[in-house]
């Protein structure tokens, strides 16, 4: 990988981490595990549309690892890793179908896949099928959060020349 690309990628990762750290300070009004706005995913959505699959995977991997260390919640790493993995697979596929003017659609599906991955991980860890009852709430929250982050990414994409690979 060329150096410039690598530097831009690390910058993006840093931006994502800062957004993540700031969001940690905002109290979450929804007391349901797994529900959050996920502002850092604006960067993920942006990267999915501008960078190669491997590069996005590296960005997300570093972000969730460092992010879980920052928040002091290492157990959350497992859930977010499963969610992010599924979300990335889905979004990298959707990128081929959905063009840049409809990013928010891809983002909503990404958020739904993220919640599905989280749910699968939680089911595996706790062995409690009753957790599935949270899933409807995750779906509703995922649609809204995905819509928001997707729209943000959509507005940013044409304006942000600095991070252009």
């Amino acid at each position: 990988m060329e150096l410039k690309r690598l530097a831009r990628l690390s910058m993006l990762t840093a931006v994502a981490l800062i957004i993540f750290a700031v969001e940690l300070q905002i109290p979450n009004p929804f007391p349901i595990p797994g529900v959050k706005l996920g502002l850092a995913n604006i960067v993920t959505v942006y990267a999915v549309y501008r960078y190669r699959a491997v590069e996005v995977a590296m960005l997300v991997g570093v972000r969730i690892t460092l992010g879980s260390l920052f928040s002091g919640n290492v157990m959350a790493l497992l859930y977010s890793a499963c969610g992010s993995f599924l979300c990335l697979l889905g979004m990298l596929f959707l990128k081929r179908i959905i063009d840049e003017r409809h990013i928010w659609i891809a983002s909503v599906f990404g958020a739904l896949l993220h919640n599905t991955g989280q749910m699968a991980a939680a089911l595996l860890v706790t062995q409690t099928p009753a957790l599935l009852l949270y899933y409807p709430f995750l779906v509703v929250a995922g649609c809204l959060a995905g819509l928001f982050t997707g729209l943000c990414a959509q507005f940013i994409l044409p304006r942000l020349k600095l991070f252009e690979p």
Partner: peptide, 23 residues
């Protein structure tokens, strides 16, 4: 735990939805 989601969920209300502390 770091996030205290389980505390903020309050009393166990719904017959179906459990209180969980994932961490």
């Amino acid at each position: 735990c770091p996030d205290k989601t389980c505390v903020r969920m309050g009393w166990l209300r719904s017959g179906a939805m459990p209180i969980v502390c994932l961490p």
